[in-house]
Design a protein around this nucleic acid. Structure first.
Length: 429
RNA sequence: GGGCCGAUAGUUCAAUCGUAGAACAAUCAGUUGUCAACCGAUAGAUGUGGGUUCAAUUCCCGCUCGGUCCA
């Protein structure tokens, strides 16, 4: 049987009256009126109405279920329907695949199923135009990120996800058996991307990373997508600017290109204004002190603190110059204030979207910091070797793509914006 | 790991210590212009183990699963 479509539904129009077409798609809805049946047929490009008449064709669609796959051969004609400018009068109806009934969720979303049911039937959930819109937006976000970074002279790279030693200290790593060796799943491309600056100067990676944290919240996943950049000859303020411009570009791009998706989601994307506020850690704890939350220099900011800061600074802002001791071993200290680091987080309200900074490039300093943090420099031998081969001063950041998606789409739960999310409980599908 | 909330029909919800109700979906009948079609009929459910009670879906405890907040 020939399954060649002559047209995608989105390419049809009322100007094609009388033209014979072959279309294929999923039965979204069907209305039987005795000697006449209307089908609403959807493919990935759009939706159309099919009119079925005649004893033989009616027999074909008599026990047709919603979401079944059909191929229609027919002619385009004018429609009297309110919602369709044209329709297809079916000459031949072929059922290519039958959907069972009942389906585990209502893919039209007329009755909105709970997230657990939808994730259990995720592939089907994508027939819901609201859900599909999220992932069309995600595609456009990725497209834009690649374009912006490429235009800035960054090269896209892929680093290993199976790693032989714990890259930033052992906590929170998934371990796995690698034949007869111990291996781990990478929680960040940090060490690799730093090394790559000495050969490629400016690199970025968009990839999944893994964190074995038993956090069950709307913003944590054990497998998440990270956008990472690392650049030689840039200070932390330079990569902050790149991040800021990237965020603005992403919002602008989606605002312009995803009109229908915004409609489907019932939301409007509004481009944020650059520059974002820059708030130093010292300023932040001072502000918190005024709100009755007393902190000393060196205290980490808890969720409650970040929420309060989020109230003071709604939207995007940078939280900069953290105490060095709160930062990983590879972060550079400030020249005039060695207690403070050349580091920043990009926040959206209370939500941390990105973390970055200037990195140490002097191997002696790195070794000292490793010891300070109770880590064994011998474990980092492979990494440290590269620092003797002409390691340039460099800076970078990692951006949580899934979290950015929740901000962009104004959706609370990060599971909504990931096709098959992994959290401490969910391993299937 | 801890707190709070929850688990009722395929789905989304309601109710009750004593016959568990609706909407959408389904099945059957009718309908040649529907478009979240209409119309009549039919069928379909209290997560799991224990306890209290004459009686538990309802109250209590454990477990499992989910949601959410915190660490």
């Amino acid at each position: 049987m020939d399954i060649k479509k002559t047209h995608d539904i989105g390419t049809l129009g009322s100007s094609m009256k009388g033209q014979k077409v072959v279309v294929g798609g999923w039965v979204e809805d069907l209305r039987e009126l005795g000697k006449l049946t209307f089908l609403t047929l959807r493919d990935v490009t759009g939706v159309s109405q099919i009119v079925v008449a005649g004893a033989e064709n009616l027999q074909q669609v008599k026990d047709l279920t919603r979401q079944s796959v059909v191929q229609i051969t027919g002619a385009v004609q004018e429609s009297k329907a309110r919602d369709f400018a044209y329709e297809i009068k079916a000459e031949k109806v072929e059922i290519l695949s039958r959907a069972i009934h009942p389906l585990p969720i209502d893919p039209l979303g007329r009755l909105e199923s709970g997230i657990d049911n939808r994730l259990n039937a995720r592939a089907l959930d994508l027939r819901n135009q609201k859900t599909a819109s999220i992932f069309k937006i995600r595609h456009n976000v990725l497209l834009c990120i690649r374009k912006v970074l490429t235009d800035r002279g960054f090269l896209e790279v892929s680093t290993p996800k199976i790693i032989g030693s714990a890259s930033e200290g052992g906590a929170n790593l998934f371990s796995l058996k690698y034949f007869d060796k111990q291996a781990y799943l990478a929680q960040s491309p940090q060490l690799y991307k730093e090394q790559l600056t000495l050969g490629l100067e400016r690199v970025f990676e968009i990839s999944s990373f893994y964190r074995a944290e038993k956090s069950h919240t709307v913003r944590h996943l054990t497998e998440f997508t990270s956008v990472d950049i690392e650049s030689a000859f840039m200070d932390y303020t330079d990569v902050m600017e790149i991040l800021e411009q990237l965020i603005v570009s992403v919002f602008e791009h989606v605002e312009k290109t995803c009109i229908q998706e915004q409609k489907n989601l019932g939301m409007e994307i509004r481009k944020p204004k650059a520059p974002f506020d820059r708030v130093t850690y010292r300023q932040a704890i001072e502000d918190l002190g005024k709100q009755g939350l007393t902190l000393s220099f060196g205290d980490d900011l808890l969720d409650s603190h970040l929420r309060k800061l989020g109230e003071i600074h709604p939207g995007f802002y940078f939280l900069t110059e953290w105490p060095l001791k709160l930062k990983p071993f590879y972060i550079h200290e400030k020249d005039d204030d060695p207690e403070v680091s050349k580091s920043f987080d990009l926040q959206y309200g209370y939500l941390e979207l990105s973390s970055g900074g200037r990195r140490l490039h002097d191997p002696a300093k790195i070794k000292a910091r490793l010891l300070e943090q109770g880590l064994d420099p011998a474990q980092f031998e492979d990494h440290l070797r590269a620092f003797d081969w002409g390691m340039p001063p460099h800076s970078g950041w990692g951006l949580g793509l899934d979290r950015l998606m929740t901000v962009l789409t104004q959706i609370d739960n990060v599971r909504e914006v990931v096709l098959y999310p992994r959290d401490p409980e969910r391993l299937f599908p």
